[in-house]
């Protein structure tokens, strides 16, 4: 499969060139955040307070790692189910978020927000946490360490493999891929 290499932060130009089904390798900074962190990020936005990182062009990785063994930057680090962040994602996109990495279905509202705000949703392979951890070279918790695996961390990734599921043109690989291979039982 041909692979598109992209770097973060993402620009609208890069996002527009991504289509459902594209294989990508991501290099640069991505931010780790899942359930509890999303609740807090949106609460800060609603209160008009600053966020722990700049959302402009940012990519969030829905992930809560296992603890790092000595000498390693991170433990196993595969994606969690993205749908639980659907309630928060449109607000974040309206404030500059350009990319989300996770796994699993997104709501109609989130998909519409990707079209309206020029953003993209990538799937990484769920359950491949040992493999994906090898593409993460640095890990620094930058907010809410008391949340443990749910804290916000700044991760540096190199050639992190993912597939474009939802693009900013309305494409949806979960629907298209499934329709292509469905057949009568």
């Amino acid at each position: 499969m041909a692979v598109k290499k992209i770097t973060t932060p993402l620009t609208d130009e890069v996002v527009r060139d991504l289509y459902a089904g594209d294989a990508v390798e991501i290099t640069g900074v991505v931010y780790q955040a899942r359930d509890a962190a999303h609740k807090r990020l949106v609460a800060l936005i609603e209160a008009g307070e600053p966020l722990p990182f700049d959302l402009k062009g940012a990519v969030i990785y829905y992930m809560g790692p296992s603890p790092a063994k000595p000498g390693r930057p991170i433990g196993s680090a595969g994606p969690t189910t993205s749908g639980r962040m659907d309630a928060y994602a449109p607000v974040l996109m309206r404030h500059g978020l350009k990319g989300m990495i996770g796994k699993g279905l997104r709501s109609a509202e989130v998909k519409q927000a990707m079209v309206d705000e020029t953003a993209v949703y990538f799937a990484a392979t769920g359950g491949a946490g040992a493999l994906l951890a090898q593409r993460i070279t640095a890990n620094e918790v930058i907010a809410w360490p008391e949340l443990g695996a749910e804290a916000v961390a700044r991760l540096e990734v190199v050639d992190f493999p993912a597939i474009v599921v939802n693009d900013c043109h309305g494409g949806d690989l979960y629907e298209e891929g499934r329709a292509k291979y469905a057949r009568e039982a």
């Binding site: 799937a123 690989l173 298209e176 891929g177 499934r178 329709a179 292509k180 291979y181 469905a182 057949r183």
Partner: peptide, 10 residues
């Protein structure tokens, strides 16, 4: 026969 496939990508 559903077509969901590995990771739901078809």
């Amino acid at each position: 026969a559903l077509g969901i496939g590995p990771q739901g990508l078809g």
